[in-house]
Design a protein around this nucleic acid. Structure first.
Lengths: 110, 110
DNA sequence: CATGTTCGTAAGTCATTACTTACCGTAAGC
DNA sequence: GCTTACGGTAAGTAATGACTTACGAACATG
């Protein structure tokens, strides 16, 4: 648990923060520099830098240094990992079944 | 942002916590009471109660009181909301296109 | 009834995290 | 060269969150 870090785990925490979601969604439009991203956010530029770092370790964005600046763009890997995890939950047949089985517990078993 | 709360927002925060993911995954097997869930977790029973509350507001689980106990089971709504949100990101044509457009920024446009 | 379970909630603590300002390195532009 | 723009990192603070124990309400059981 502590030394086995799945990517989707980081994706959840990365996208759990509203500011990070906004940054990520802003990058959907086009790759952007830190300054551009910060201009659209209510927080400071260093804060955006820190958020980008989190998004990067979640494989949601990647950087491409261009001279003075650093151009961030969306990366598919993070969302793919997340989708795979969700598919695992989805495909479980017990999912829809869960509602029915509830009655079985009425008489205490133990 | 503060008075427009989308469900997927809560789903991200709900599943960002490892303990809550474990509880949620445990419920995939079958509906369970709070005590049963707590027995499988390294945290106290009240902690599990609090986690269940978070999962409930994210529409990931639902409760069904049965006499003395409360039977929790998985609810589809939360994951469906999440999936819809992810599909919105996925289907974006600019997604794959983003890598190409990067070069356009080379000369600063202002 | 009186006692046991079961579980939600309150209150307080400790760790995490999101944010700020200050600073430094590096590339660009006179 | 010197100065300005860009952005990562450090350090400190304030807010959030995950946990504990203590308690009380509601049903179950003798």
């Amino acid at each position: 648990m502590t030394y086995e870090h799945a990517i989707y785990e980081n994706v959840f925490t990365a996208l759990a923060d509203p500011t990070r979601r906004h940054i990520f969604e802003a990058l959907r439009a086009r790759p952007q520099t830190v300054g551009e991203l910060a201009a659209d956010q209510p927080v400071s530029r260093p804060a955006v830098s820190q958020h980008l770092k989190v998004l990067e370790t979640a494989h949601l964005v990647s950087v491409e240094p261009q001279g003075n600046r650093r151009l961030y763009k969306i990366k598919r890997d993070g969302l793919e990992e997340l989708r795979t995890y969700l598919d695992g939950l989805w495909s479980d047949a017990l999912f829809a079944y869960g509602a029915e089985i509830a009655n079985r517990i009425k008489m205490k078993t133990e």
